[in-house]
């Protein structure tokens, strides 16, 4: 079944792929697949069912009789859901941009430049990793309010714009580049900025993309923090808006399902498009930790 790849010794016992084993493996995977995506598909199907179709029926129908987008227009009529989506996008973009800039420069300095106090700074970044975000969220809320940023999208994005973990990930990525390359550039008179821009950055694209993907997902999905910070209905992000939708539409699961899909489908599509970079980057970075 499998063709032995050249240069790699294959053991007849260990690598044996029996038809029975293969069938069992794929059957198990299909069952897990059903459990994993089944609930999501059911929600998608519910969101496409018309009001004339009984969603509570005793014999559940996965495929809608006559698929309709009515529930989506219904959500948009009742709450400014496209506005919520735009708000989420703004917050996520601010977080991704801030982390790519701030974590890259700090990570580079910590990995590549010698200076007095480096170990102390590194220790400070490391020490915050043991602090769950929920522990400081109340005090953070007070800080953001005092800065006059309560009930604003900037207030939601601000604390997450440079994450300590991302600084450490970037430092690890820069450490993995052989120092000889840069030493040659120093002798040639390249400035720190030129070295970072033209030598170091191209080698850490994997980690950069993982940070960008994870930061975007984290900001898009975040709930507790925006729930604390935001009050006015026009400022809400998607997750907070959805949680209010739940109480307004307790009666119609179709409409709630449509709202849930508006939050879910874009992020799944984005991840599927970028999953190659994600799994490759995770494979490169996590092994060293």
């Amino acid at each position: 079944m499998t063709t032995p790849s050249p240069g790699r010794r294959r053991s007849p016992v260990f690598d044996a792929v029996t038809p029975l084993g293969l069938t069992a493996r794929y059957l198990t995977l299909l069952v897990i697949l059903a459990v994993t995506v089944g609930p999501m598909l059911w929600e998608l199907s519910t969101s496409l069912k018309s009001v004339f179709e009984d969603v509570y029926t005793a014999t559940p129908q996965l495929l809608p009789h006559r698929p309709t987008l009515d529930n989506y227009t219904q959500v948009a009529r009742t709450v400014p859901i496209t506005h919520f989506a735009l708000n989420s996008l703004i917050v996520a973009a601010l977080c991704v941009g801030g982390n790519l800039l701030g974590a890259t420069t700090a990570g580079y300095a910590l990995a590549r430049l010698r200076f007095c106090g480096r170990r102390l700074v590194l220790g400070l970044f490391l020490s915050t990793l043991i602090l769950p975000g929920e522990v400081t969220i109340i005090s953070q809320y007070q800080t953001v309010t005092r800065l006059g940023l309560g009930n604003s999208l900037v207030g939601v994005a601000l604390p997450a714009m440079i994450g300590a973990l991302n600084v450490l990930l970037m430092r690890n990525a820069f450490l993995a580049i052989p120092p000889e390359v840069e030493e040659a550039a120093v002798i040639d008179g390249a400035t720190v900025w030129q070295r970072l821009r033209h030598i170091a950055l191209p080698s850490v694209k994997g980690t950069l993309s993982v940070i960008a993907i994870l930061t975007f997902i984290g900001a898009w999905d975040d709930f507790l923090w925006p729930l604390l910070v935001l009050q006015s209905p026009d400022k809400l992000t998607l997750t907070v808006g959805l949680s209010y939708l739940q109480s307004v539409f307790a009666a119609d699961p179709r409409v709630i399902a449509a709202g849930a899909m508006i939050a879910l489908l874009p992020i799944l599509a984005l991840f599927t498009a970028l999953q190659r970079y994600f799994f490759r980057g995770v494979g490169e970075g996590a092994v060293k930790g």
Binding site: I32, T36, V37, T239, I256
Partner: peptide, 25 residues
């Protein structure tokens, strides 16, 4: 690769969305 990606879907979904899906379920 397909299975790996799809098994990661629940991780990417917001806890809010997932809870709404399960509430209906």
């Amino acid at each position: 690769g397909f299975f790996r990606t799809v098994f990661y879907f629940p991780v990417i979904a917001s806890a809010v969305v997932v809870a709404l899906i399960w509430q209906w379920l």
